[in-house]
Design a protein around this nucleic acid. Structure first.
Lengths: 253, 253
DNA sequence: CGCGGGGCTTGATCGGGATCAAGGCGGCGC
DNA sequence: GCGCCGCCTTGATCCCGATCAAGCCCCGCG
C-alpha cells in the first residue's frame, strides 16, 4: 500500500471538495475530458458541468466508493489511485470484475438496474469526480458531444468485458493482463513499461479466474524467461513484444 | 436447421421491407417497444422513428447480419429468429459472445470502435428492425425516453457480460444457461418451460467455455436426474427450482 | 439404394491448474 | 525487541473437464 501522503498523516475522510483549484491539470487525464472540453471551459455549458460534478475523496485502501445495492445516482471518474469492482455471492465468495485507473469511469453498469450491482473498493488512496447521472443525462440531451461520449464509454466497456470470456491458458491470461494495464497506463501518459501493481496477487488471480498460486508461478516463470522484472508489486516489462505475442488471443488487434 | 418455410422454397434474399403491415404486433415483443411507445405512435415523433427504422430479412441459418470490421451504421433489434455473435481470432478459432432472441438488440458493442468487433450469424430464419444509429442518436437528443432507453440497454448488456466471468463448474454453467434462456423467453411472452434450442451443442459449449462433449454429458445427466426433458434440441424444464439452485452463483438474485 | 457428412452421445485417457501444505518475508502493534 | 498476520512463493498431489476415439442417428444427395 504505497501512499502519496507522509507516513502517519491520515487523509481527511471522504467528502466533496468544492474546488481543489486544479481542474485543468487533472482533467487532462480524465475520461470525461473530451466531453468537458466539448462542453467548453469558455462557454455557458461549463457552469452546468461544474454544477453536476463533485470532487470526492480521498478514500484509503479498502474503503468503499459504493456498495452493492446502493441506489444509483452518479458515476465516478477516477482522478487518482486505483479501484477494483467486485461482486460477492451469497456464500461470500468474491468475484473481481475489473480494475480502474486514473481517467477511467466506474458505475456505468448501475444505470439499468438503478442500483449498484457491485462494490467499488479503493486499492490505494483514491480520488474521484462524481457526476450526478440525472444531471448528466439532461446535459447529454442538450450537448450531443456529451451524449456521444456516454454512448462510447458504455460501448467500450462492453468490449473489454468480452475479453475475459475465452478459455485461455494461465500464461495467456497473465501476459494479456500485463499488456492491457500497460496500454491503459500509456493512454493516460504514464510509463507503459514500469508501473506499480496496486492490486494483490489474489485480486489479479480472482480477476483472471486463476488461483493466486498460479499467478505467482506464472510471474516467476516470466521473470526467469526475462520477459518481465518484478519485485513485490513493482513491475517492469522487459520484452513487451514477446508478452504481446503470448497474450495476443486476448488482446485487441 | 429447422425452417419455417416449406421445404425447397427459398425465402427472398435479405433486403429492407418498407412496410409489413404489422408493426404493432411484433413491436410488442421488441426491445425498443417502450421507446417507440414513448415516442408515441400518435405523435409527430412517430414519423421520425419510421424514418430511421428499416425492416430487414429474412436471413437464413448461417447467413451474416454483419461481419467483423463492417463500418458501424446501425443497431439491429431481432424481430424473429435467433442470432449468435462471435469473434474469430487469427488462428480461426471461434468465440461465441452471445445468443439473441426476439426483442433483443445486437450491435451495441460497435458504437465505440465504430466498426463491428464481431460477426452476427443467424441460427435460424431471422428478421430484424434496423435502426440507423446517427438518426437514433439525434432522436435521443430530442426525446429523453429514447436516450434513457439506449443507456439502459447498454448498461443491461454490461451486466450480462459479467455473468460468464466466474470460474464455475460445468453443471453450474449449463443450469444457469438454461434458466437464463427460460427467463428471457418468459420476458417476451414465450413458454419458459418448453422451448427449442436454436443453437448446436457446439455453440452452447463454446459460449460457456466448455467442450461440446461436456455439454452433452451434463445434459444427459440432467435428464437422468429428471431435471429436464431433452430430445435433440427440444427442451423441457422439469424442475426449474432445482436448476435455479444449481446455477444460482451465475444468476441474478 | 448406398454413401457421406454433420451433429450428438458415450467411453477412455490425459493434463493444466486447483488445492493442500509449508515456509519466507515484511509491516505493524504491543 | 518480539510476535502476529497478511501476502507471496514454491513444492506435491489431485481432479475436472479437455481431448482422443468410436459409434449412432438423421438427412440430403448421387
Amino acid at each position: 500500500m504505497q501512499s502519496k501522503y507522509p507516513a502517519g498523516r491520515l487523509p481527511e475522510p471522504p467528502n466533496p471538495i468544492a474546488d481543489d483549484g486544479d481542474e485543468t491539470r487533472f482533467c487532462g487525464t480524465c475520461a470525461f475530458s473530451s466531453a468537458c472540453i466539448a462542453a467548453g471551459y469558455d462557454k455557458p455549458e461549463l457552469a452546468e458541468l461544474q454544477c453536476l460534478v463533485e470532487h470526492v475523496g480521498p478514500f484509503r485502501a479498502g474503503e468503499h466508493i459504493f456498495r452493492t445495492g446502493d441506489p444509483f445516482r452518479a458515476i465516478y471518474a477516477v482522478r487518482g489511485g486505483t479501484v477494483k469492482t467486485r461482486m460477492v455471492d451469497k456464500e461470500g465468495r468474491e468475484q473481481v470484475l475489473g480494475f480502474y485507473l486514473p481517467g477511467e469511469v466506474i458505475g456505468l453498469n448501475a444505470i439499468y438496474p438503478e442500483h449498484f450491482p457491485c462494490d467499488a473498493v479503493a486499492l490505494d488512496t483514491a480520488f474521484f469526480c462524481r457526476f450526478s447521472f440525472p444531471a448528466m443525462s439532461a446535459l447529454a440531451s442538450r450537448v450531443p458531444a456529451v451524449q456521444k461520449h456516454l454512448f462510447r464509454m458504455l460501448s467500450k466497456e462492453l468490449g473489454t468485458a468480452s475479453l475475459l470470456a475465452g478459455d485461455h491458458s494461465a500464461d495467456e491470461r497473465v501476459a494479456a493482463f500485463l499488456m492491457d494495464l500497460a496500454g491503459r497506463y500509456a493512454a493516460r501518459g504514464f510509463s507503459p513499461t514500469r508501473f506499480h501493481l496496486s492490486m494483490s496477487r489474489g485480486d489479479i488471480a480472482n480477476y483472471l479466474r486463476l488461483a493466486a498460486e498460479t499467478v505467482s508461478r506464472v510471474l516467476s516463470r516470466f521473470r526467469a524467461q526475462k520477459l518481465i522484472g518484478i519485485e513485490g508489486r513493482e513491475l517492469e516489462l522487459l520484452d513487451p513484444v514477446r508478452l504481446r505475442a503470448i497474450g495476443q488471443a486476448l488482446l485487441p488487434d
